[in-house]
Computed example of a mutant assay.
Amino acid sequence: MENENWKNIRVPRVSSIEKCVAEFDITQLDVPSGRFRIRIYENTNGKFMGFTNLKIKNLFDGYPEGGVGNGNSITEALEDTIKNFMENLSENRILNDSDFIFVNYNEF
């Protein structure tokens, strides 16, 4: 199948190739602007990974951490990513807008 040929590309010194296969807008009123975005990537093994464009500074050192998720399908990765983000959001602390960082659209 032509759409799957990218999984067979092998180039010296290139360790992996991932394809952005889906993008979702999530409405969540507890975050600045009330929404964030999730991108789902597929690797050459057919596994899917999701990443949020909104990160929350952690309590330990203030490092921004986004939601991440994995799955055997786009839907599984999306659900896992949303759940991971929501767990980070509900870490028994009060968050304000300065605790959030939006990643530039071209960088996530």
Rank of each mutant, 00 (worst) to 15 (best):
R13I: 11
R13E: 12
S16K: 14
S16C: 06
S16P: 01
I17Q: 06
I17N: 09
E18K: 15
E18N: 14
E18H: 14
K19G: 09
V21G: 10
V21M: 15
V21E: 09
A22R: 02
A22P: 01
A22G: 05
F24Q: 13
F24D: 00
T27F: 03
T27V: 10
Q28Y: 01
L29C: 03
D30Q: 15
D30L: 06
V31E: 00
V31A: 01
V31W: 00
S33Q: 13
G34P: 11
G34A: 04
R35G: 09
R35D: 03
R35E: 09
F36Q: 01
F36L: 07
F36V: 01
R37Y: 03
I38N: 02
I38F: 06
I38D: 02
I40C: 07
Y41W: 12
Y41N: 07
Y41V: 06
Y41M: 13
E42A: 14
N43S: 11
T44V: 15
N45Q: 14
N45I: 07
G46R: 11
G46Y: 10
M49R: 15
G50N: 11
G50F: 04
F51E: 10
T52G: 04
L54R: 00
I56R: 05
I56L: 06
I56P: 00
N58S: 10
N58R: 14
D61A: 11
D61W: 04
D61H: 12
D61P: 03
G62D: 07
Y63M: 08
Y63Q: 08
E65D: 11
G67K: 02
G67N: 08
V68R: 12
N70H: 14
N70Y: 13
N70R: 15
N70S: 15
G71Y: 14
N72Y: 08
N72D: 15
S73T: 15
I74K: 09
T75K: 15
A77V: 05
A77N: 08
A77G: 14
L78Y: 10
L78T: 03
L78K: 11
E79G: 07
D80M: 04
D80Q: 10
K83D: 14
M86Q: 15
M86G: 02
E87T: 06
L89I: 06
L89E: 07
S90A: 08
E91W: 04
E91G: 05
E91A: 13
N92V: 09
R93N: 05
R93Y: 10
I94A: 08
L95K: 03
L95F: 06
N96A: 06
N96W: 01
N96M: 05
D97V: 02
D97G: 00
S98G: 00
D99P: 10
F100M: 02
I101H: 07
I101Q: 12
I101Y: 02
I101C: 04
I101A: 05
I101R: 04
F102V: 00
V103C: 06
V103M: 09
N104V: 05
Y105M: 11
Y105I: 10
Y105T: 13
N106Y: 09
N106L: 14
